[in-house]
Amino acid sequence: MNALAIENLSHGLGKRKALSDVSLSIGPGSFTVLLGPNGAGKTTLVSLVTGLYNAQHGEIRIFGHSIRRDPMPALASLGVVFEMPTLDLDLTVDENLAYHASLHGLSRHEARKWASTELERLDVAGRRSDKVRSLSGGQRRRVEIARALLHRPRFLIVDEATAGLDVAGRRRLLNHVRSLCVEGLSVLWATHMLDEIEPADQLVVLHQGSVRWNGEARALASDNTLEAAFLQLTGPKG
């Protein structure tokens, strides 16, 4: 079953059409890149998929559960890293993770166990008793990834998580999330950075609220560089 299935999704914010007839699907264990320039509608799409507000038209299903009609099982199988940092700066890493675990109904034992596993994998376990305020930008992002994985979701959405990180930090975060797909996790990686894409990735190019490309990244770049193909899709004539 597809991790995510979006059919004919349209949504307006005020008079502006933010998304127009968007359809896409993400298979299990797939790493799908949602690529688009700033203002393309990526964050609106993420907000609709996470049920923060309802789409005006169209249908969103997560593992077969409609986010509008059956949101609880859909949200339970979903982990999200939002574009904006969402950690409580004045609480410790552990306290932030415990809060998230409680919202997902984990017992203290489970929360501690999975927090240790994820923080160690992301190499931030040494900072777990520190206040988030004292962490670097890269460490905070890694804590957010750990938090999003705490309740063992089957589908992870990462919205522009590498913004503001240095090259090494970006590479590290990306490699880690890619490695999770090998374990069966489906990932939707929203970004505007072309160098985060690999030829075998599933690629969805979003521009001005509509899907301009949906397929393997290498197919888009077959005749040209990925950058040139992307600019052609999103340029004035695109």
Binding site: G51, L52, P73, L75, F82, M84, T86, L103
Partner: peptide, 9 residues
């Protein structure tokens, strides 16, 4: 951080 609260199942 309101998003964290409101995306809880």
């Amino acid at each position: 951080s309101m998003r964290v609260l409101l995306t809880a199942p």
